[in-house]
């Protein structure tokens, strides 16, 4: 475990806590894409199949349970919570995310490390995580103004992936046989998707203005 990976996991955790804070504090999920949250729940469920079979460390197991539990709780909240679900902007959350699931699964069947059930699902979860933010970014552009906590949520999600890229660079130079092409390439694509959001986030922060994304 290196500092970049720990920082990445912590910013990932913070992004989830910020989202939970927004939903519970404001009793509202306006501006949040349910589709992105469903994709994240699918990412964690298909990636952490080894939760019950391979024990790596307490930290690893606890974080997997936290990620699975929180993503399912957020999806449940946005679908079932009698107050929160009323604030879901269904008409703004129109990205056809089933295409993302189909495309990433097709890619996972073509590009994988080993042709086994778990490895295919692992590759699928890696590819799906790279594009899972798209419905959320599209929804932010549709809704124009981004509320403060939602902006922070997306920012921390992007920061988590940026730290992971530093982690892979660090491991590449310090560990003899570290090659994770699938995770690295997919992680680069994922971080690139945040690039324009980071740009507008930085501009709004510099001008101390409200974050506005061009439609």
């Amino acid at each position: 475990m290196n500092i970049f990976r720990l920082a990445g996991d912590m910013t990932h955790l913070i992004s989830i806590l910020v989202l939970l804070l927004k939903i519970y504090a404001t009793k509202s999920c306006s501006g949040i894409s349910l589709k992105t949250q469903e994709l994240y729940a699918l990412v964690f469920l298909t990636r952490y199949l080894d939760l019950l079979t391979d024990f790596i460390s307490i930290y690893n197991t606890v974080m997997k349970l936290v990620f699975i539990g929180s993503s399912l709780a957020i999806v449940w909240c946005m679908r079932r919570h009698r107050v929160v679900r009323r604030s879901y902007d269904k008409e703004l959350d129109t990205f056809r995310h089933y295409f993302l699931i189909a495309a990433t699964f097709a890619l996972a069947v073509l590009v994988y490390e080993k042709f086994t059930f778990r490895e295919i699902l692992w590759a699928f979860s890696i590819y799906l995580e790279a594009v899972a933010i798209l419905p959320q970014l599209v929804m932010l552009q549709r809704s124009g103004n981004v509320d403060n906590l939602t902006g922070k949520y997306v920012f921390f999600l992007g920061a988590y992936r940026a730290f992971y890229i530093l982690n892979w660079i660090y491991r590449y130079f310090t560990e003899a046989r570290f090659t994770r092409w699938i995770a690295c390439v997919s992680g680069l694509v994922q971080t690139a998707l945040y690039a324009d959001f980071f740009y507008y986030y930085f501009i709004s922060w510099k001008n101390n203005a409200k974050l506005k994304l061009p439609a």
Binding site: R5, H12, N60, M63, E113, K114, R177, T179, R180, A183
Partner: peptide, 10 residues
């Protein structure tokens, strides 16, 4: 190369 390495990242 990877097979020896478990998936230790989240």
């Amino acid at each position: 190369a990877l097979n020896g390495q478990t998936k230790d990242e989240l």
